[in-house]
Design a protein around this nucleic acid. Sequence first.
DNA 1: ATGTCCAGCAGAGCTGGA
Length: 262
Amino acid sequence: MSFTLATWNINSVRLREPIVLKLMEEHAPDVLCLQECKSPVDKIPMDGFRALGYEHMVASGQKGYNGVAILSKIPMEEAGMQDFASLGHARHVAGRLENGVTVHNVYAPAGGDVADREVNEKFGQKLDFFAEMRDYFNANRPEKSILVGDLNIAPGEDDVWDHKKLLKVVSHTPVEVELFEDVRNSGGWHDVTRGDITEGKLYSWWSYRAKDWDTADKGRRLDHIWASDDIKNTHHSSRVLRDVRGWEKPSDHAPVFATFDL
DNA sequence: ATGTCCAGCAGAGCTGGA
């Protein structure tokens, strides 16, 4: 059985309901994971999503900030929420699909501007979040699982527009990248996107601040899809829908898709 | 990477977060 999953930092699900619907209509992933919903769960505009076949949702929400939701055409039950680093934020939710796959949807802290936990508390929180995530999946070995989300780290040289220029920029510092690979390796996770698209620059985020994001193309690959070791060979195609970054009133992130045969 | 969006609070424009 083939199924397609997408992850997208939507930067307010209520403001961007129209383009969520557009993505659902035009690309119809079976499962759509959203981050930065910025909405309490009961104010997520489910009616339109439901009408397009997304009848199932698990979500963790809070007013104004953060928030993650998994919308699914496939029946799904809630499979827990973790508050890594005890920040009191809605940054993780998991769902177990009827096909036996567990999906973890994560919105990692951005980490502020300065890559030094002594002067920037948010950077410390980001490091703690990943360390706890590593320990959690080390203790709870993922099986038949997919982890997606805005992890706010671009690990590879080809995951940023200029590796050298970004070495001190939060999201691409060596300490973050090392921790990122620690989390991935100690959970036995496999990088699905780079497994399918091995060559060349690949981004999923372009700042709102650039005058012409498309021409300047100063992007970073912050959004990820990982698969547990036991299903790592079941994916067969991945793509970043770059065009979506140019839609009406866009998010600053483009959705990342992966298709699996299970 | 030098800028632009978003939500909350309040009831206009500022603030904090990304």
